[in-house]
Amino acid sequence: MVGIGYRKDFAETFLAGTALNPDFIEVAPENWMGIGGYWKKQFAKVLERYPLFVHGLSLSVGSPDELDFDFLRKVKAFLKETGAVLYSEHLSYAKCDNAHLYDLLPIPFTGDAVKHVSERIRTVQDLLEQKIAIEIVSYYTPVAPELSEIQFIRSVLEEADCELLLDVNNVFVNGFNHRYDAAAFIEQLPAERVRYIHMAGHEKVSDTLIIDTHGEAIIDPVYELFAHTLRQLNRDVPVLLERDYNIPELGELQAEMDRLTSIKKLIRKEKEYAFN
């Protein structure tokens, strides 16, 4: 399955035409919960056609603040109402000192943060009565690190007993920004926990920094890293194309999705060949 991040920017064209044919769509619940009118009607139409994956922005599992249980209950209701296939969130924090920041800040890679975040993810899973997938975020600076990034992520996944949303572009971005081998990093991740994959474009702003913009097409090295990722997995995993800014003609997004599909098929054939 290859899906697309459903955005209001292209909702009308998407529903009216045939240029884009995803297997599923993904939305941020924050943008669609508790709304009515025009967008609710449009959302109802798209839900009739496509399975829904839900990818949260504001739960802030890495926050030092208390979890927002009222918000979490609303998310739970939204997941139920929409029949969502999966709920994922970010391994980051977006709220601190009782203030939302509306962006994803990096959690310090420390042992106490591992325990804190893991406990919160377990609480979320208990309340939602389902496992959630946690996304490795792109980051531009470490914050008071005591552990390596891979140690931190592996520990959280293990202690929280949650699933992994593997954003291949984020690993590429992080590998570039923090000078490590992205392919080797992916090999060290627990493949059995990978539930979902994100793919996106980015912007290289200097010789030493890439920003994860979701505003460009996926570049070849990220496609290659995607293929490498699939070779680590022994099963089919849904893949999402994210495009949040600088939205091109929908045909261009479909071409990117087609390329992702063909890479998936290619890797599947490789595995079948190796197995036979």
Binding site: P64, C96, T110, H116, V143
Partner: peptide
Amino acid sequence: LLTDTTRQHQSALASYCR
């Protein structure tokens, strides 16, 4: 489970962003 030190670092980053 979070130490005051980690909490302070997170708060410092958030405060800088704001």
